[in-house]
């Protein structure tokens, strides 16, 4: 046990810094090789693309640290967008709160089922992945009906407004990640999250409200996915029904690449942000190459993830 853990600590450091080192290298090389990579426009675009995923992955980070998994976020992301677009007819407030409430409620149900009935998170959230996608198709006539958002509405501003050319979603994502980091490391709730994922039985004996903690993280995850959907809809000026397929896997991938243990008990928000950066830079570079099929982006991310997970396993020995 002793050796396992020192190795795990070492692994933690290595993974976190490993991802950071990889990110710095990627950025440096891309900067030199692709003249357009370092342009302000491209950086703005990169950051904006990353901000939606970062919001989803933030919730996923909490879930994974408690030792769980949330497969429903991709569907909730799409559902949140459609609800926001539909709600925008009734004003800014409805457009923003409706997706948060509905997706939060689905997250809450996930959490309740997982914490109270001891069902596997994988199964429960897989069910809500299907449920939310189904609901989405039902309210859009099988996706035929795309709700548009009026271009001059205040809600669009939320997705398209900029400060110094950087979109609002970037600032929202950064603010949420800072808050999330503080929540994780500097509050009692954060300690409960680590304890729940680190050793659930011990946590119960230490008086940690394990069930409540789990319910909270799934609710958070659902709400954040809904928010990401709303922001995306505002940016795209419509509720696109086909987005979010497989996004849950991207979110899990960036969390793990960021050094959070898939088995729970250890992880950081900063790592997740770095993971998001890495995936988005890879995507961006592949787009820059142009001649390369964009499907290679999945290939590269996949290989990268595999390397990280294999490293995690080896270093944990």
């Amino acid at each position: 046990m002793m050796t396992t853990l020192t190795a795990a600590t070492r692994a933690k450091v290595l993974q976190r810094q490993g991802a950071a080192v990889a990110l710095v290298l990627m950025v440096a090389v891309s900067w030199l090789v692709f003249p357009r990579f370092g342009s302000l426009d491209n950086v703005r675009d990169l950051a904006l693309q990353g901000s939606f995923l970062a919001v989803i992955a933030l919730g996923m980070t909490f879930v994974i640290i408690t030792g769980g998994i949330d497969l429903s976020v991709g569907s909730l992301y799409a559902l949140g967008g459609v609800l926001a677009a539909w709600g925008s007819q009734h004003g800014f407030l409805v457009a923003l709160t409706l997706p948060l409430l509905v997706c939060g409620a689905i997250g809450l149900i996930n959490g309740l089922l997982i914490a109270r009935t001891n069902m596997a998170p994988f199964i429960v959230t897989l069910a809500s992945l299907l449920f939310a996608r189904g609901l989405l198709l039902a309210i859009t006539d099988e996706g035929a009906n795309t709700y548009q958002i009026a271009p001059d509405s205040a809600f669009v501003e939320l997705g398209r407004g900029t400060v110094a050319g950087f979109g609002y979603p970037i600032f929202i994502a950064v603010a949420l990640c800072v808050l999330g980091g503080a929540l994780l490391n500097r509050t009692g709730f954060g300690q409960n999250v680590f304890a729940t994922g680190g050793a659930e039985q011990s946590a119960i004996l230490m008086g940690v409200p394990v069930a409540r903690t789990k319910i909270t993280v799934y609710t958070m995850s659902g709400t954040l996915a809904g928010l990401a959907g709303a922001l995306t809809a505002a940016y795209l000026q419509s509720g696109v029904t086909v987005i979010g397929v497989g996004t849950e896997l991207d979110a899990i991938a960036v969390v793990v690449i960021g050094g959070t243990l898939l088995t729970g008990g250890m992880g950081t928000v900063l790592g997740t942000v770095i993971g998001v950066g890495l995936i988005k830079v890879i995507q961006n570079v592949i787009n820059q190459i142009g001649t390369l099929d964009s499907n290679y982006q999945s290939v590269v991310s996949g290989v990268f993830l595999l390397v990280v997970v294999v490293l995690q396993r080896i270093l944990r020995r």
Binding site: M1, L5, A8, Q191, F194, A195, G198, A199, Q201, S202, A203, L205, M206, L261, G265, M266
Partner: peptide, 9 residues
């Protein structure tokens, strides 16, 4: 009786 602490923390 069982050590009731969290090894990773």
């Amino acid at each position: 009786q069982e050590v009731n602490l969290v090894p990773l923390m």
